[in-house]
Design a protein around this nucleic acid. Structure first.
Length: 271
DNA sequence: AGTGCGGCCTGTCCGC
DNA sequence: TGCGGACAGGCCGCAC
């Protein structure tokens, strides 16, 4: 579900509620997520203060005095700040109860999300250490994509969704960025020129910034920390628009499957 | 080393 | 109204 804009929206939303606040209790109702929830989270975090909130790719990093919590929202995860005495709903798996009795509440029907605890630098964590650059950093460029893609036969859409190449580009924004760049998603990554990768890198930055500005994309269940949807869906050019008219040329949007994921493109605007 | 699949889960929707 | 199957914002781990 959540790609980079949704995770960043969540980070910005929960940050003011957590910074410098102290955890009173951790309640784990379901510890079978993508990986088992670390044991003794309650003991580890009781009376510990939140010092910082960061994001690396689609991971949220909540730093405490004694270590770092890594959170991944998977396909269907969301985090909300709930007022005191809000009864948990189905699939509300974990509460971090603050001194004010507000909770940071993790909700995830499909349980593809995960929670990790590390005392070391979070960026050294096995799941983070091999990640590619942040797409909104200056080191992410067309040159980077070009260099990494030489001799690679995989479809360019799969290539840009590989978090070892660049983080944060999921199924929606990969399709959307390729539309903006005029590149057909099934093109082998190794065949694409530097000039076209420059366009693609710029398109990825543009689409992610625009989506963050709109509070992310809500197709089905993404909600921010207040439980409200994001509004980028209205700006989607191709995603889930199979058979509808291209906003640029009126051709019909096509849907194909790449790497077992639905992919959408305009057969006329994208080559 | 790169690529392509299976699997982890629940909810929803569609066709029969 | 019920039931099976396909599909859904991710991504690791494993074969080849």
């Amino acid at each position: 579900m959540p790609e980079l804009p949704e995770v960043e929206t969540t980070r910005r939303g929960i940050e003011p509620h957590l910074l410098q606040h102290t955890v009173k209790q951790v309640i784990v109702r379901q510890n079978q997520l993508r990986w088992p929830v670390p044991k003794n989270l309650n003991k580890t975090l009781t009376n510990k203060r939140v010092l910082q909130l960061d994001r690396r790719g689609k991971y949220l990093i909540i730093s405490f005095e004694n270590g770092h919590l890594l959170l991944h929202l998977g396909m269907s995860g969301s985090l909300r700040i709930t007022p005191p005495n809000t009864a948990p709903r189905k699939h509300d798996h974990i509460d971090w109860v603050l001194e004010s009795d507000h909770c940071l509440r993790f909700h995830d029907p499909r349980r593809f999300g995960s929670v990790h605890w590390t005392k070391d630098s979070p960026y050294e964590h096995p799941l983070l250490i091999k990640l590619g650059p942040e797409p909104l950093d200056t080191e992410f460029s067309g040159q980077h994509l070009f260099n990494k893609s030489r001799k690679r036969k995989a479809a360019v859409k799969n290539f840009i969704m590989d978090s070892h190449i660049v983080v944060g580009v999921g199924n929606i924004y990969a399709s959307e960025a390729l539309f903006l760049a005029g590149i057909k998603p099934s093109q082998p990554a190794g065949n694409i020129s530097l000039i076209r990768y420059d366009k693609l890198a710029k398109a990825i930055k543009k689409i992610l910034r625009a989506a963050i500005k709109q509070g992310g994309t809500t197709l089905r269940d993404f909600v921010n920390e207040q439980g409200n949807p994001g509004y980028f869906k209205q700006k989607l050019n191709v995603y889930e628009r199979e058979g509808e008219k291209c906003k640029n040329c009126n051709s019909r949007i096509k849907k194909i499957t790449l790497g077992q994921r639905s992919s959408y493109f305009c057969p006329r605007c994208q080559r």
